[in-house]
Amino acid sequence: MLETAVFVIRRDLLLAMRRRSDVLTVLLFFVIVVSLFPLGVGPEPALLRTIAPGVIWVAALLASMLALSRVFAQDYADGTLEQMLLSASPLSVIVAGKVLAHWLMTGLPLVLLAPVLALQFDVPQNFLGELMLSLLLGTPALSLIGTIGAALTLGLRGGGALVALLVLPLYIPVLIIGAGALDAAAAGLGAGAHLLLLGAFLVMAAAFAPWVAAVALRIALE
């Protein structure tokens, strides 16, 4: 069972490596969206410092959502998804493998890049750890929840915009807690409570989302 998950992860990473441009697009989108804000609100350092957590988190949220349609679309189009549904291993395990691979390609790069962007916003350097940690716990949760939306909208017209409509409201708790972690750290309260909550949310999402997405996939392929 675990073997299949590992196999799926390796396969998806291999596919991504042969098509690196897809991974880069998401990353560049993240960078550009974050860089637009100073142009929109002005270069006042105090203001930028205040909005930095929210901006980085919202941009990460949008970037991870943008990448969602790719989780299943290709496998759906070429018939591989059908084979996954008929696999000897539970579909939820395969989905979990796919989500992890998806996060490694689209989520992890955002986490690694975020501190650099935070410096653009004059975020004090001693908060960068909290920023990365909150993203490290939050972005996998986003990928997990988003997968449900991707599975539900598989093969529908207006897929991309529809996914946004379904998934963004569900992202709100992660956004609030994730961006709140930085605010709390900046206020001298420590980000511990926020990070614990994010962790709890991630555990819950990891337990249920692959299973729900598997149900949604079976519905979508009927």
Binding site: L156, R157, L162, L165
Partner: peptide
């Protein structure tokens, strides 16, 4: 929106339910 985007009523019901 999800229900409106799906033509097959059976799939619409079940996807909406999830």
């Amino acid at each position: 929106a999800l229900q409106a985007a799906i033509d097959d009523p059976r799939r619409a019901d079940r996807a909406g339910a999830v």
